[in-house]
């Protein structure tokens, strides 16, 4: 893809519960760009983020972030590296016993020794960036799904990370909330110079903001490149996914036996 990779995955093999999720995935994620990782449900897109974040270890292969071999890092070094990462979880994962303000202040309180008035300024700036400065006193239970993700986004950029990972940010959002999130991801990337990894199966939204994209299926990368390159990709499988065609290389029908015999028609195999 490009030479200045911030994240490198090379021949990554990962299995869980006897099922092979990744079978030799190789991927370079460039610095300072938005990279979309797409693919059908259940292909391990979230698992890929957890491998990058060191929450899971691959069976074999290299997972490197900012030059660090993540699976080989000691616990302390791994936690230090994570201070440079932000992650937006699909559920938002806000701390339910803390207010919006305290949620955003949490990483600042834990990782810095800033005075309270400075923490307040930073929290308000981050909330302003996601348009929720006025909601700082609310509890997570009082927020809508879209607001929850925006607060989680403000929290994940509180420490000005180098890398931010978005796990299905558009899933279950109404068009307005989706538009807001698309704008926020684009604006944050350009204004903060972040490296952004966007995991999604919402093709139009993802391709509209990403610089690079890759599609994962059956444990492998089946297509990658710029959005334009991907749209012109010769693989039928890639085209089926991008265009949302119900039948193709990924069949509409789950593998089944002889139709005639299932329905008890004459001539069917007994």
């Amino acid at each position: 893809m490009v030479s200045s990779a911030y994240i490198t995955l090379k021949d990554v093999v990962f299995s869980r519960s006897g099922r092979r999720i990744f079978d030799g995935v190789t991927l370079n994620i460039p610095k300072g760009k938005i990279t979309a990782i797409m693919g059908p449900s259940g292909t391990g897109k979230t698992t890929l983020l957890r491998l990058i974040g060191g929450q899971l270890r691959p069976d074999s292969g290299l997972v490197s972030v900012a030059g660090h071999d993540v699976p080989k890092l000691k616990r302390r070094d791994l936690y230090r590296l994570r201070e440079k990462m932000g992650m937006l979880f699909q559920s938002g994962a806000l701390f339910t016993d803390l207010s919006v303000y305290e949620n955003v202040a949490f990483p600042l309180r834990v990782h810095t020794a800033l005075p309270e008035d400075m923490i307040r300024d930073i929290v308000l700036m981050k909330l302003e960036a996601v348009g929720l400065r006025g909601a700082r006193q609310l509890m997570p239970s009082e927020l809508s799904g879209g607001m929850t993700r925006r607060v989680a986004l403000a929290r994940s950029i509180a420490l000005d990370p180098e890398l931010i990972m978005y796990d299905e940010p558009f899933a279950g959002q109404d068009p307005i909330a989706m538009g807001v999130l698309v704008k926020l991801i684009r604006d944050l990337n350009s204004s903060m110079g972040l490296t952004s990894v966007l995991v999604s199966h919402d093709v139009p939204e993802s391709l509209s903001i990403c610089h690079f994209a890759c599609i994962i299926a059956d444990g492998k990368v089946i297509g990658e490149g710029t959005p334009e390159e991907l749209r012109a990709h010769p693989s039928e499988r890639v085209q089926q996914f991008l265009n949302g065609e119900p039948d193709g290389p990924v069949p509409f029908h789950y593998p089944s036996g002889d139709t005639a015999s299932d329905f008890g028609f004459p001539g069917g195999a007994s």
Partner: peptide, 18 residues
Amino acid sequence: ATEQLSSMEMMGVDPLRR
């Protein structure tokens, strides 16, 4: 279940300690 422990880990905060 609500990924609060995971999010804490990803913030560089060890949930075992915290």
